[in-house]
């Protein structure tokens, strides 16, 4: 079954099965943020597990996730402007 494509978002809508190009996506992030993103979004670890692995506080993991996602948003905005 296909939905009328007029209503489907184009750029930000990879089908759920199509693997995201994480390397490209995570380019704007700092090395630590990239590590945190890798563990959270790809390896599906919990913030507690990430904190233990990277020897940081759980709150710091959440902060990296929030800041990183804002950076990605800025990148999308920049991309749209260009």
């Amino acid at each position: 079954m296909a939905l009328d494509e007029t209503y489907l978002a184009d750029l930000e809508t990879p089908p759920a099965t199509e693997p995201l190009d994480f390397d490209a996506l995570f380019t704007p992030l700092s090395p630590t943020e990239r590590q945190v993103f890798q563990l959270y979004f790809i390896d599906d670890l919990t913030p507690q597990e990430i904190a233990a692995k990277l020897k940081m506080k759980r709150l710091a993991v959440y902060k990296h996730l929030s800041r990183g996602r804002l950076k990605l948003k800025q990148e999308v905005k920049q991309h749209d402007l260009n």
Partner: peptide, 14 residues
């Protein structure tokens, strides 16, 4: 999780 990454409007949600 994928939506958290790919929907820009969701990025300000803590």
């Amino acid at each position: 999780k994928q939506n958290l990454l790919t929907i820009p409007a969701m990025s300000q949600i803590r």
